[in-house]
């Protein structure tokens, strides 16, 4: 229980430090269901995600983890014949009230496979969010690139070759570049869809460390297949199974004393 109190304390501290008086929740979903055609991908999900916490979503393949994640920045709209019911509140505003572009500026996303833009340099990739949409940032591009690359722990490795192509980097470096690109547009929430599943253990470790450091500034939701990773990086964990949210609790509690039998069976490896 000590750990839980720690999380609470940390949360209160963050709020004081950042002077945020608004709600404690970055994301609230109410009876959220997503259907692809006739098939329900997720069913009546009720989830409240606190600000400045890391939440991981675990579950076997096809349980709707990615669908849930992608519905939070409306990426699921890319799939044809998608139907959504229920409500999603992002930063105390209903998701339907957002312009999709503003929403995605607030809710960034990091993908499973590192996907830097191949025809751009490292430098251009970091500022691509501005360059592509034609927005003007409040600080200079040089400052953004330096700040974000330092923040994503890539600066020392690439500062001498910022104009080299992004695809000349290793997989782990590319993923950190994608993270730098995401934080460059100052999101408040970062969604990560299995960000380390294509990476080696060392790169995975670096990214997990980043996630840990990011908590001060962002709310992070990470989908992962790796239960150890969920246990290592997250404050809260949601366990999903065939479209249902089975259990959502503090990570330590979910992994030590789960209340639902199914959760216990999954985390002890009885299925999945």
């Amino acid at each position: 229980m000590k750990v839980i109190l720690d999380t609470e304390l940390k949360f209160e501290e963050h709020q004081k430090l950042k002077g945020k008086d608004s709600s404690k929740f970055a994301i609230t979903t109410t009876d959220l269901s997503v259907h692809f055609g006739l098939k329900a991908a997720i069913k009546k999900i009720n989830l409240k995600i606190r600000r400045n916490t890391v939440t991981s979503i675990i579950g076997p393949s096809g349980c709707g983890k990615s669908t849930l994640l992608r519905s939070l920045n409306l990426m699921h709209e890319l799939t044809p014949r998608t139907k959504v019911t229920g409500t999603i509140k992002i930063l105390d505003k209903d998701i339907t009230e957002y312009d999709v572009i503003n929403l995605r500026n607030k809710v960034g996303m990091v993908f499973q496979k590192p996907n830097p833009f191949p025809k751009m340099s490292i430098y251009e990739n970091v500022i691509s969010g501005y360059k592509l949409s034609g927005k003007n940032p409040s600080e200079s591009f040089d400052d953004i690139v330096e700040r974000c690359l330092i923040h994503s722990a890539l600066w020392d490795e690439v500062k001498d070759r910022l104009n080299k192509p992004a695809i000349s980097l290793s997989g782990g470096q590319q993923q950190r570049l994608c993270i730098a690109r995401t934080i460059a547009i100052n999101p408040e929430i970062i969604l990560m869809d299995e960000p380390t599943s294509a990476l080696d253990p060392l790169s995975t470790m670096k990214i997990e460390k980043l996630i840990h450091d990011f908590k001060n500034d962002y709310t992070i939701i990470i989908v992962t297949h790796n239960m150890q990773q969920a246990a290592r990086v997250s404050d809260f964990t949601a366990f999903m199974f065939i479209g249902d949210l089975v259990e959502f609790d503090k990570t330590k509690k979910l992994f030590t004393v789960p209340t639902v039998k199914l959760t216990e069976e999954y985390i002890t490896g009885k299925f999945g």
Binding site: N73, M75, L78, I101, N102, L103, R104, N105, G108, M109, F111, K113, N115, P116, F117, P118, S128, G129, L132, S133, G134, C178, R181, T182, I185
Partner: peptide
């Protein structure tokens, strides 16, 4: 690749851009 489109869209870049 689809993931390049998604990368751009997820950065808040409009579809036509």
């Amino acid at each position: 690749p689809v993931n390049l489109r998604e990368a751009s869209l997820a950065l808040g870049v409009s579809r036509w851009k």
